[in-house]
Design a protein around this nucleic acid. Structure first.
Lengths: 165, 165
DNA sequence: CCTTGACCTAAAGTTAGGTTTAGGTTTTAT
DNA sequence: ATAAAACCTAAACCTAACTTTAGGTCAAGG
């Protein structure tokens, strides 16, 4: 079964211009043409699924091209291809851990504003931070605030009236 | 406690140019200066933590500026600020779900290449897809392949020799 | 005093990942 | 046979988020 660029565009909800761009970047190294017109086979359809997966994993277009070139070389590159997928797995796992910390921070902030709205101001809140926070909330606060600076932790912990948005 | 731009740069492992860029974009609307030199207070340090959180959640700089302007307006904007954090929470949860599907696909591909390497070719694999796959692997395959096209599912399921990378 | 290191601005440059435009060819339906 | 719809290319354009550059100011130590 073969598809035109317009059919593939509808199948994947991708603009035709994007498919042409991917082709120009070498993401379909084996695609056929018929009097100049692209013919997407099942190989290219599965390639597109892999492209979306690798893109979602944070891989850049030029590295996806490299993968597609390996795939075109056949069985000799199984090892390289497997290592690539394993590296992307690690990258995605790291990204998910980062997002979990972000989510902890966001949950903390939601609690913070619920409280601020209930009380009409942040006065009591700013005195609770961080050791007077309810245990559940304190966990979120610490997870969310552990992302970047370590040097400042000590300074800010005991500074009393830290502004907190 | 006040910090210079160089100190903040080290604390957050951010280039000085980035801090100046954030300031130019209005992310520190209340920052003070002393004869032209920026003075970061604890307010700006906490602002930076929030900036990193909102950025990690996928928010653009201009919307972060909006948030910082709301914060500068005081208690009247608690509601807006809470709604922003709730919206970002939803966005991050969706992103994590998307990454989980990506991870399923990557795990499937890792299994695929382990098998291809063990067997020396993809012949048996391409006949297993999708109904002859081991149940655990089939789950990953279906999760990973449910991301984009729905129209193609039926077509590809029964096409026999689909190439699979 | 004077030099050195840290700070400042405005403006131009960079990068990734597309999208748009202009002009032309091919296929499909009447 | 012809007109509309769908395809093609090359090249210019776009956006976000920075980074670099060029030229200047400020503060501390010798």
């Amino acid at each position: 079964m073969m598809y035109t660029i317009g059919q593939v565009s509808e199948m994947f909800h991708l603009p035709i211009s994007t498919l042409r761009y991917y082709d120009k970047e070498g993401l379909f190294p084996e695609m056929e043409r018929q009097s100049g017109i692209r013919r997407f086979s099942e190989r290219e359809i599965e390639a597109l699924r892999v492209i979306e997966c690798l893109k979602a994993s944070g891989l850049e277009i030029r590295d996806i091209r490299q993968f597609m070139e390996w795939a075109a070389e056949g069985a000799a590159t199984y090892g390289k291809r497997k290592e690539l997928f394993e590296a992307r797995k690690r990258a995605v796992e790291e990204e998910m851990a980062r997002l979990q910390k972000t989510l902890d921070m966001l949950n903390y902030k939601c609690w913070y504003y619920e409280t601020a709205i209930r009380e009409g101001n942040e006065d009591r809140l700013s005195q609770m931070i961080p050791d007077g926070l309810p245990p559940e909330i304190k966990k979120l606060y610490e997870s969310g605030h552990s992302q970047s600076p370590s040097a400042t932790q000590q300074i800010l912990r005991n500074s009393g009236l830290s502004p907190a948005f």
